[in-house]
């Protein structure tokens, strides 16, 4: 088996567990929508404030939900000694990393699709340039999933994961929040030329942390 096949095996496993247990469907997705509602309560929905700040609210919500998805991604390995099984499966650690990150990315993509509908309906946002918007979303999602998986295994190896992951992950992904929010703002305003530099930042972040993850996951999984 090559790297891609092994990775898709791990991703398939994680996604099958999610499809059957429905934790993501019944807990993480509703959480995202609740946060959107709370933002509307916190900010006045009548004066168009929500429409102006929708990109930022969207990505803050995605980051908060990503914390849940990541903690879930490693919680399923904790039960029944699954992590030992994974470690002894003979799969390339890089493939395990890519697989788990891909599964998180797919879950986040589903959440983002739902949240996009949410901001269109609830916050009265109309999407402008779809191309840059979609590209920025994909790159940001890859970046968050990669860093999240990396910190997930880091925290899992230390046994304090629930509280440790946010404090480690959120500062690191702050450029993603910044880049994705600016790219969305530019795309929604139809000024897609302003979006490209931010898409560049998101691409650099995604490539960098995916490579670090493939290198560092093995040694960290050993400790987990």
């Amino acid at each position: 088996m090559n790297l891609a096949q092994e990775a898709s095996l791990v991703a398939g496993k994680d996604l099958r567990i999610e499809a059957r247990s429905r934790v993501t469907l019944q807990q993480v997705l509703p959480f995202g929508l609740i946060v959107l509602l709370l933002f509307a309560f916190a900010l006045d929905p009548d004066r168009g404030v929500l429409r102006d700040v929708a990109p930022g609210l969207f990505w803050v919500t995605v980051l908060l939900a990503a914390l849940l998805a990541i903690s879930r991604s490693f919680a399923i390995e904790a039960a029944n000694g699954a992590r030992d099984g994974l470690r002894m499966s003979g799969l390339d650690p890089a493939a395990i990393f890519l697989g788990k990150a891909a599964a998180v990315a797919v879950e986040l993509a589903a959440l983002e699709a739902l949240l996009t509908v949410g901001v269109i309906v609830l916050f009265d946002v109309s999407l402008g340039a779809i191309g840059p918007l979609l590209l920025a979303t994909v790159l940001a999602t890859v970046g968050v999933a990669a860093t999240g998986t990396l910190y997930g295994v880091l925290a899992a190896s230390s046994g304090a994961r629930e509280t440790l992951v946010p404090v480690l992950l959120l500062p690191v992904v702050s450029p993603v929040l910044l880049g994705a929010t600016r790219a969305w703002e530019a795309a929604i305003d139809g000024a897609s030329s302003d979006a490209w530099p931010w898409i560049g930042v998101l691409a650099v972040f995604a490539v960098l942390y995916t490579s670090i993850g493939t290198l560092a996951f093995g040694p960290l999984l050993e400790e987990a």
């Binding site: 860093t147 990396l150 910190y151 880091l154 190896s157 230390s158 480690l168 500062p171 690191v172 702050s174 450029p175 910044l178 880049g179 931010w198 930042v201 650099v204 972040f205 960098l208 942390y209 670090i212 560092a216 040694p219 960290l220 400790e223």
Partner: peptide, 21 residues
């Protein structure tokens, strides 16, 4: 090992944070 890797992950982030901000 954990801490050394985490320190390098954080360090790599510094220029990205700097440029984006």
């Amino acid at each position: 090992k954990r801490c050394a890797i985490a320190a390098l992950i954080a360090f790599v982030d510094v220029p990205i944070v700097h440029f984006s901000v």
